[in-house]
């Protein structure tokens, strides 16, 4: 596989220059767009493997870019760049079909990790690896086994469902609404979900108060952290 190509959609020349330099140094190829319109145009050409999208664009809202892109049937992975306070904007972007988000200001290593995760997901959408491992955790989705430090952990059926969903989207943030919608249909509420997550953490985490695997994205949802073993 050739080097992945990132389409950077941001109106700030300084940010574009920074990304170009930093990503280029790690042999990513970059394309740049200053406006939403030009971003959409370049995305349709199909040369980009992933889009890094700033939500505040001069000509249109970043949300609109996601909406049009997904509306046009594109499955191009999208990572959104946004400011911290805008939780609702992040949730909306994720629900519109963005794959992940990075909060400004960001560290380059984190950005690169997110880009990789999103990219991997874009490639893996059809089949999931049957066994997921991350740190001391290993989850066998087919046999429904879950081990921590080689010790099997027992989960209730509902807990397992949540865990499976997180594993299937490992490394990505899942919004509350998304998890609820997948597992409870219309009937669930966030409070219920929090209780389950706490139970899973009790069994899974070395220190449930400071989880290393299932982290909380405040105001948005949960993320299963992927750490290379």
């Amino acid at each position: 596989m050739s080097d992945p190509c990132v389409l950077i959609v941001d109106d700030e020349p300084a940010i574009r220059r920074l990304l170009r330099t930093s990503l280029g140094a790690q042999s990513w190829r970059t394309m740049e767009a200053e406006t939403g319109t030009s971003g959409l145009e370049q995305a349709r050409q199909g040369r980009a493997d992933i889009m890094l999208l700033d939500l505040g664009l001069p000509d249109m809202d970043g949300m609109e870019v996601i909406r049009r892109l997904r509306g046009g049937g594109s499955s191009l992975p999208i990572v959104v760049l946004s400011v911290r306070e805008d939780e609702r904007g992040k949730v909306a972007a994720l629900e519109l079909g963005a794959d992940d988000y990075v909060t400004k200001p960001f560290s380059m290593a984190e950005l690169v990790a997110r880009l990789r995760t999103a990219l991997r997901h874009g490639l893996q959408k059809e089949g999931t690896t049957p066994v997921f491992t991350s740190g001391d955790l290993s989850v066998d989705l087919v046999r429904r086994h879950i081990f921590r430090d080689g010790q099997e952990i027992r989960l209730s059926p509902r807990e397992w469902d949540i865990m499976r969903l997180l594993v299937q989207h490992a490394g990505r943030v899942l919004t509350h609404r998304h998890i609820l919608g997948q597992l409870w249909g219309a009937g669930g509420d966030v409070q219920q979900l929090r209780v389950y997550i706490r139970q899973i953490r009790q069994k899974l985490e070395a220190d449930p108060e400071r989880p290393a695997h299932i982290v909380t994205e405040t105001g948005i949802g949960y993320r299963l952290v992927v750490t290379d073993p």
Binding site: E12, A14, S22, A25, G56, V83, K104, S107, M108
Partner: peptide, 27 residues
Amino acid sequence: ISHDLRTPLASILGAASSLDSYDALLS
């Protein structure tokens, strides 16, 4: 204001962390 404050900060932090993490890779 948050945009105007954060955009330069994002660039500065991004560049600094890039220098920090990928020093070997940079020309």
